[in-house]
């Protein structure tokens, strides 16, 4: 279980550009939750994920993961418990290393790195099996530089890497936003499949309202650093994009501003 209490984060403190990005957010993520997060530009969606992952440190508040207070522990330490997939497909993998080498790095996410050999033959079998889940035929090209793959393929492998060692929380930060619509849909379906099959707890930021409605068991809407809507169960199932937009206007008193959300 992930508990967030009264979390605050500001950027550029003390300058004219000071921005209170996360404003006293409290949220409890239950085990097995698959939360989709949606919100207008600058609502603090990505920042929230980065605070959970430890990329940024909060100004105040508390983050507790499975009873352990991780609020100020380093990103590297947290990586043992958290899988993080970024928006940019180039960011999630080491381009000059082979597919199997990238997977081997991920396989050791939870372990201490020693001077023993970087990949064992036993692992290769695991990687082949896992890669075949992607349905991209990559299981036959373990020795291919990952930089030679397309953005969609790379993002699919990144997803696999984030879940190769089961994370306590999987963070997906607009991980399909940089892909073409068809590939984005494929990667999204794959994410959903992996999350369900491995019974993962996940938080997914998306700019696509329909996706936010279709996937997951819980939907959170953010605005100006606050959570303004938190729906689950039947309430979420019956949502439409229209209803979401109206809910947003009612809760925030503003129009929904996210070009990509409205265009896609």
């Amino acid at each position: 279980m992930l508990e967030i209490k009264n979390l605050n984060k500001s950027f550029n403190v003390g300058t004219v550009n000071e921005k209170h990005v996360i404003n006293d957010i409290s949220l409890t993520v239950n085990d097995g939750d698959f939360i989709t997060i949606i919100g207008s530009n600058g609502a603090g969606k990505s920042t929230l994920l980065n605070l959970i992952a430890g990329t940024y440190m909060p100004d105040s508040g508390k983050i507790v993961l499975d009873g352990k207070n991780i609020t100020f522990s380093s990103e590297i330490k947290r990586a043992k418990d958290i899988g993080h997939v970024f928006q940019d497909p180039m960011m999630g993998t080491a381009a000059d290393m082979w597919i199997e080498e990238n997977l081997a790095l991920a396989y050791r996410r939870t372990k201490k790195r020693s001077l023993s050999w970087g990949i064992s033959n036993k692992e290769r079998e695991i990687y082949k099996k896992e890669l075949s889940r992607l349905g991209l035929g990559l299981e036959n090209s373990l020795n291919k530089k990952i930089g030679l793959l397309s953005g969609g393929q790379r993002q699919a492998v990144t997803l696999l890497m984030a879940t190769l060692q089961k994370p306590k929380v999987l963070l997906l930060d607009e991980h399909t936003a940089a892909l073409d619509p068809k590939t984005a849909a494929a990667v999204l379906t794959l994410s959903d499949q992996i999350i369900r099959e491995d019974n993962l707890t996940a938080m997914m930021v998306t700019h696509n309202m329909q996706n936010a409605i279709d996937y997951g068991n819980r939907l959170i809407m953010m605005h100006a650093g606050r959570i303004i809507l938190d729906l689950s169960g039947e309430e979420k199932k019956n949502l439409t994009v229209e209803m979401l937009l109206r809910q947003f206007e009612k809760a925030s008193g503003e129009e929904f501003v996210n070009d990509r959300a409205l265009l896609s």
Binding site: I76, H84, M91, G92, A94, A106, R108, R109, M161
Partner: peptide, 13 residues
């Protein structure tokens, strides 16, 4: 190769 990714893989870069 990719220090951001390495940190997310728990590597002390």
């Amino acid at each position: 190769n990719n220090s951001k990714m390495s940190r997310s893989m728990g590597i002390n870069t």
